[in-house]
């Protein structure tokens, strides 16, 4: 089980959280989108083998969403950051096997 550092409540068990997949997907302007751009926004999310910036919500604690970097091979957790703040750099100098997008 992951131990996830909630930025508001501290380190808690994974069972207190829900997963939100890739972080930082901006809402596009629906008036200017083609169908395939809209499909990309709706359905395509990063799926890298390596570091992934992703969203979690601490539903059994503060109830708030936040973001963190996590390695999808080792499950190691990197920097944690709040939504709408600048995304920290990808941890380490691991070479990614593609963005997985």
């Amino acid at each position: 089980m992951l131990n996830i550092p909630c930025p508001h409540c501290g380190l808690r068990n994974e069972t207190e959280f829900h997963y939100g997949a890739e972080a930082g997907v901006a809402y596009p302007d629906p008036n200017t989108l083609t169908d395939s751009e809209w499909a990309k926004y709706l359905h395509i999310r990063a799926n890298p083998k390596g570091w992934l910036a992703e969203r979690w919500v601490h539903f059994a604690g503060c109830g708030r969403w936040f973001n963190l970097w996590r390695n999808t091979i080792t499950h190691e957790i990197g920097p944690v950051y709040l939504p709408f703040t600048t995304q920290p750099k990808m941890p380490g100098n691991t070479v990614q096997e593609g963005p997985g997008k």
Binding site: L2, E14, H18, A21, K49, L52, E54, T72, I73, H75
Partner: peptide, 10 residues
């Protein structure tokens, strides 16, 4: 719950 390539879970 989460994305992984580790072939193991919680």
């Amino acid at each position: 719950a989460f994305n992984s390539y580790a072939q193991r879970g919680g």
